[in-house]
Design a protein around this nucleic acid. Structure first.
Lengths: 216, 216
DNA sequence: TCTTTTTGTGAAGAAAACTTCACAGCCGGT
DNA sequence: ACCGGCTGTGAAGTTTTCTTCACAAAAAGA
């Protein structure tokens, strides 16, 4: 069951939203202010946060900033009675997934909730798909050797890699380099030298951690 | 520099071994008994332990059993003045890498030390080869789903896994479970329930870290 | 005991991944 | 302009990995 938290200092609004969302099949948790919300989020997993922009004490933007430190991908829909272009743009720039003005119609709210959850699910699916790419890429020993060598040397030309790894058929090397480029672990600079991307560096770091852990 | 610990209640022997091993280029730490040894090992990394079989208080076998709980792969050479076939066989059965009788010639000791260190290094190299197995294993999405599900649920029967992952051909599942068992990530208890091994848990942890890092 | 379900085994078939081959474009040196 | 080296492309061939099939053994339930 999908877990949604509603953060708003207006009790009536909180309760009416609990009723609407509960009726639509979601499990709803209420919080009257940002401090309470952040504490509950630290203890329990949620799929979506509905967050009032203007509240006494911690405002919605500050609450969102803080929860992003712990849950970078937790979707947030910002609610505001003081709708303006500036407010809306700022909230979205700070990372909200959507922005709904109060008072809102029930169907507007539910549409936004469902769309946001669906998009978050798609993002989660994309992360899972990228494991295919990462692991499939690293399953091959030649490609692991390429990454290790390029990591050590920082910047290399095509034939340097071939010679060092003693791969005589350059088209074989070309194939594997292409796979690594498409996976986003390797890139070429303007002189066509190969170097690791940020992702490539991260992958190598995690691979080393894995070996270390499995070696006891 | 290679770190060696010598555990022996005989002060003269400890010191003469420190001299011999130090002269051979090793960094030597001395401990007079098992309790002291276990405490130092808990704080500092060693490459080899030279352990007296018979000591007052904790004997060598008990010390080795305890240090194996923390460092399953740390090489141990057992030393004994009371050499017998039974003693030697028991020490090796309990996991010592070598067994040297006291009094020993200097070259006998150094040979044993060097050989044991070299074999340990070979083991470490094998861990690198096991990257093939790890990555090859994780390259398959079904196997990743199995590991994720078993991690969440802790202990599962064969058909539970099939039904949950909606894999209708049970022999397909059987194939993938077999791969995971052979890789050492999955095991079965006495009721044939599937559960993650320590290695399996480590692998899942690193996979999550990898996804997290690559998601920014 | 009989039947059904669960779990397992090995071989064959299919798909995916990798390697090799044939060729081509680009660049620098003579 | 020609040659050689570097780098790249796509197709064909080979190997590896995965899926399916046919059957069997073990366990559970009636």
């Amino acid at each position: 069951m999908t877990e949604i938290m509603v953060v708003d200092d207006d009790l009536d609004l909180r309760e009416s939203m609990a009723e609407v969302l509960g009726g639509a099949g979601f499990a709803v948790t209420l919080a009257a202010d940002g401090v309470a919300a952040l504490e509950i989020i630290g203890r329990q997993k949620f799929d979506l946060i509905l967050l009032d922009l203007v509240m006494p004490g911690l405002g919605g933007l500050e609450v969102m900033r803080r929860l992003r430190e712990k849950s970078p991908r937790l979707p947030v829909i910002m609610l505001s009675a003081f709708a303006s272009v500036e407010n809306a743009v700022e909230a979205m720039r700070q990372g909200a997934q959507d922005y709904v003005t109060k008072p809102f119609r029930v169907d507007t709210l539910l549409t936004s909730v469902r769309r946001t959850l669906e998009e978050a699910s798609f993002e989660s699916c994309r992360a899972s798909m990228s494991m295919d790419r990462i692991m499939g890429c690293l399953a091959n020993p030649i490609r692991r050797r390429i990454l290790t060598f390029v990591e050590q040397e920082s910047s290399l030309r095509f034939m340097d890699i071939c010679r060092r790894l003693e791969i005589e058929d350059h088209t074989k090397m070309n194939f594997h380099l292409k796979v690594l480029k498409e996976a986003g672990f390797l890139a070429q600079d303007d002189r066509k030298h190969y170097l690791l991307t940020q992702n490539g560096l991260q992958v190598m770091e995690c691979a080393r951690l894995l070996v270390k852990k499995l070696s006891g």
